[in-house]
Simulated assay, not measured.
Amino acid sequence: MRLIGSKLEQDYREELKASRAFHFSANSQSRLKEVLQSAGYSVGNALVLHWTPDQSEDFYTVLIEGAFLAAVRIDRSDAGDTPSIKRYELRDYLRGLSRVYQVQLLVAQDLVKAIS
């Protein structure tokens, strides 16, 4: 599969850029950035692919340097709770992924190349 410059791709690229600016800019105070950095992950080329807010937790799927994914769970109600981070290889993530999510992953990987 390859990118074709569709409206969907352009919209998702803009969403990724805005999310990156919010979470991973140099002056960002994002809890997600803090959690990833404290676990030893580089956030210079990180992009949030998915965010799912729950009643007391936030779940993130983050593409790290275009090479692998981190699934992050952060408890909003208990700052003392240790966040959960699980690493996934891209080949494992791609298994059974819908076409729309495959396109989103390609857009994210392309954006990582552009900002590197």
Rank of each mutant, 00 (worst) to 15 (best):
S19W: 07
R20W: 11
R20C: 01
A21I: 05
A21K: 13
F22N: 05
H23M: 01
H23F: 09
H23K: 08
H23W: 09
F24S: 09
F24W: 08
S25F: 07
A26P: 07
A26W: 14
A26I: 15
A26D: 09
S28Y: 07
S28I: 13
Q29G: 13
S30W: 09
S30K: 11
S30N: 11
S30D: 11
R31W: 03
R31E: 13
R31P: 11
L32V: 05
K33V: 05
K33S: 08
K33I: 02
E34I: 12
E34Q: 13
V35E: 11
V35L: 05
V35I: 06
L36C: 07
Q37N: 13
Q37K: 09
S38Q: 13
S38H: 11
A39R: 08
A39P: 06
A39H: 07
A39S: 09
A39E: 07
G40Q: 05
G40F: 02
G40Y: 04
Y41C: 03
S42C: 01
V43P: 12
G44W: 01
N45S: 15
A46N: 06
L47W: 00
L47Y: 01
L49G: 01
L49S: 05
H50A: 14
T52V: 13
T52A: 12
T52K: 13
T52P: 04
P53C: 02
D54Y: 01
D54S: 05
D54T: 08
D58V: 03
D58P: 05
F59W: 11
F59D: 05
Y60I: 01
Y60G: 00
Y60F: 10
T61I: 10
L63F: 01
L63C: 04
L63N: 03
E65K: 09
E65F: 04
A67V: 15
F68H: 13
F68M: 05
L69N: 00
A70K: 00
A71K: 14
V72W: 06
V72M: 09
R73I: 14
D75Q: 04
S77I: 00
S77A: 05
D78R: 02
A79I: 00
A79V: 01
A79G: 08
G80I: 00
G80W: 01
D81C: 14
D81A: 13
T82Q: 15
T82I: 10
T82W: 10
P83L: 06
P83S: 00
S84T: 12
I85T: 08
I85A: 07
I85P: 07
R87G: 07
Y88T: 12
E89P: 02
E89M: 04
E89D: 06
R91D: 12
R91T: 07
R91E: 12
D92V: 09
L94D: 02
L94R: 08
L94M: 10
L94V: 06
L94S: 07
R95A: 08
L97C: 10
L97I: 13
S98H: 03
S98E: 08
R99Q: 05
R99G: 02
Q102C: 11
V103F: 04
V103C: 00
V103A: 04
Q104R: 15
Q104I: 09
L105W: 10
L105A: 03
L105V: 02
